[in-house]
Design a protein around this nucleic acid. Sequence first.
DNA 1: CTTGGAATGTCAACAAGGCTGACATAGTGT
DNA 2: ACACTATGTCAGCCTTGTTGACATTCCAAG
Lengths: 164, 164
Amino acid sequence: MAEPSGEQLLYLTDEQLRQGIEAMFFAYRGFTADPDRILQDQSYGRAHHRAVHFINCAPGTTVNNLLNILGVTKQSLNRVLRTLIADGLVESRVGRSDKRERHLYLTEEGKALEAQLSDAQRARMRSAYRKVGPEAVAGFRQVLEAMMDSDMRRNYQTLRETKS
Amino acid sequence: MAEPSGEQLLYLTDEQLRQGIEAMFFAYRGFTADPDRILQDQSYGRAHHRAVHFINCAPGTTVNNLLNILGVTKQSLNRVLRTLIADGLVESRVGRSDKRERHLYLTEEGKALEAQLSDAQRARMRSAYRKVGPEAVAGFRQVLEAMMDSDMRRNYQTLRETKS
DNA sequence: CTTGGAATGTCAACAAGGCTGACATAGTGT
DNA sequence: ACACTATGTCAGCCTTGTTGACATTCCAAG
């Protein structure tokens, strides 16, 4: 074998990549496990969690905007929103300037659920972050960002800007 | 505000954790996008991909073993296996010592599909890894490992040992 | 040896949450 | 007036998770 170079670098071998793939699979399971557990008793699922999360992040967002972020069809999102609105967790207000648009807000009850789910998920991530330290976290974030589709990266960065 | 300390460290703030959560969400979408695209034409989905992946990793594994790794019910896995076996991608052999067990192997056709899916997923990960360099990759892996459930970490490490 | 329980795997039926397609309604803008 | 946009809804399909019921096989205690 020649000196390591190009594709031969240790961290780019097929075996290393395979391990990364499996780590991603198992870690994502852990990542969603706590909110899933909380929601399983209620008639909600992961889809509701995602909707509530992003409405909380960007209060007043429109349905269309949420659609782009979540990457599902409007029929699919609508099913989820309908139940959330019916149960009084989300409020849908007709737009002032453009009355076709619906702006979405969490009610107090909605915020409470969001906080409950968010706390659980953050607790796990905080524990992981604390175990490995800031340099590892920086690397983690860099890899995740590089792994996104470019249009999703745009959404992600928009969300970062509006809140940080 | 006092000096940053304890929970006050920059990388442990709620806002940083929230960004990490969203990065994980978007990155996982990218992570599965390529195999999903390849499979959507066929009558297979992500569940088939996962089964094929782990059978490829551990040829001769039993159904029960696969169950533990994948974390789904045996009925759910069975449906996937049934179609894979019917289509000649997976072979199921009755155990010699214990005839209750079924040992699973990929056929040549199964290996071909696995390679196709795996290549696509590795390509994305390789590109991300190359962009950010080995130190970031090391941090990425550390965080993922810290984020797994402990029982899943055991599975993950077992898989690493048997193959590396 | 037999018999009961544990382990393993299969089949059936149901629910969540994706998807497409078609269509209604209402508001915007030319 | 007319085309286009944003949203909501209905119907129906697919994948993939769930539980319940059941068959087969193994093993160990009586």
